[in-house]
Design a binder for these strands. Structure first.
Lengths: 213, 213
DNA sequence: GGAATGAACAGTTTATAAAACGCTCACTCT
DNA sequence: AGAGTGAGCGTTTTATAAACTGTTCATTCC
């Protein structure tokens, strides 16, 4: 699945196509243009990719890998509390989404067509994120910061909550700093909910709540 | 602004146009068709509405009024706790949005074009909802169920949180019952956050928290 | 014989001409 | 004099033909 498993020629094709996708958009790049960039015939492209859409899918898969690695880095960071990680997770996710879509309209178009044709891609992306989120929650639970029943279920709910700050269609409405402020308000609320659940689990009779700042 | 303030002829025009909007969609209904339905000329339509878009805007304004009245009814209901009202508010809002868009694609098209041309309409709708939401929060605060700093700010944040369950673009992904379940999970979390804030305000030393079920 | 080609096919996009549309206004009707 | 008309204006939508694109495969190349 990672880039390294690809044939050298496939990498070249992917690279040429990616460049055109970002520059001219998915719809405006043709297979023969990509072939020309690679000094080969159109027919030969199909020895390495089943279709144009599969090239786009691979392109997004690479993007996703970088995106997920970034978030995984936050999860694995030392010296940060699970609460801080949770906040940073969503702030980073938002910032990455904002940069990807608001600053680069062609990437937005590619996502639109790809997700229309291949809905699974979006689900895989969300699942990969939910995985990391669930790990943050599990660590927090083990460490006493959170009380989370089912980490994966809770991760889904957190994704629902943050949807407003991930959905590309909305980014035009508000500017980044306003949205960031609102997202922080949302995260305050989420963390308060966890604080309450943690307090409830602890029996609701102690003044100091473990893991509370 | 309400329907009653309209001229009798204007009401007739609005009614005929609305019927066509819902049946054939905004784009497929023509002014001359509406005029024919009303047994008048196209020119006469413009004595009552400045443009076709303004008819659509009035149509949506009526919809909004019904929608808001419904939510206001929840807010004003007797014998329900603010927490129950908060939950019912969002469940109803979701159900209404789901019916409006998922079950009636033509209404979806009308919203799309109207919001593209008249972004203010969406803001007014959101503001009207936020108003009611803020009142529920204020009542809850006065009654001891919630601790809410700024009701309007908090209302905004709750709207952000529920965005996933309001955004028309998403309704195709999951079915209503799955989304309802997830929304309930989100509301559980929100209510827990309020419980914690309430507990914090109360000094964090009492076992029983006022207003808690 | 595996790698690469490019003409050919079906489907889509684009270009453009024709039809239809939203809207105005000089006018008629009552 | 206020309500209503409808031909006419500029623009948008639609219909259709031409050009192009994604994909295949019989063939060529090394």
């Amino acid at each position: 699945m990672p880039l390294e498993q690809l044939d050298e020629t496939a990498k070249q094709i992917l690279s040429a196509a990616s460049r055109r996708f970002l520059h001219y958009g998915y719809g405006k790049t043709t297979m023969s243009e990509v072939a020309q960039d690679c000094n080969m015939s159109t027919g030969n492209l199909y020895r390495y990719f089943p279709s144009k859409l599969d090239i786009a899918e691979k392109f997004v898969a690479v993007l996703r890998l970088e995106h997920i690695e970034r978030l995984r880095g936050i999860m694995e960071a030392k010296g940060k509390s699970p609460k801080e990680k949770l906040r940073e997770f969503f702030l980073t996710k938002f910032r990455l989404a904002y940069e990807r879509f608001h600053d680069r309209p062609k990437a937005f178009e590619l996502s639109q067509t790809l997700l229309a044709e291949r809905p699974k891609v979006a689900l895989e992306w969300e699942n990969a994120e939910a995985q990391i989120l669930a790990e943050i929650l599990s660590h927090g639970e083990a460490e006493g910061s959170f009380t989370v029943g089912n980490p994966h279920e809770t991760a889904r709910i957190l994704q629902d909550i943050a949807f407003r700050f991930t959905s590309p269609a909305v980014f035009h409405e508000g500017e980044a700093d306003i949205l960031t402020k609102e997202l922080n308000g949302v995260l305050d609320l989420v963390l308060d909910a966890f604080a309450w659940r943690n307090y409830q689990r602890a029996g609701g009779h102690r003044r100091g709540v473990p893991g509370e700042l």
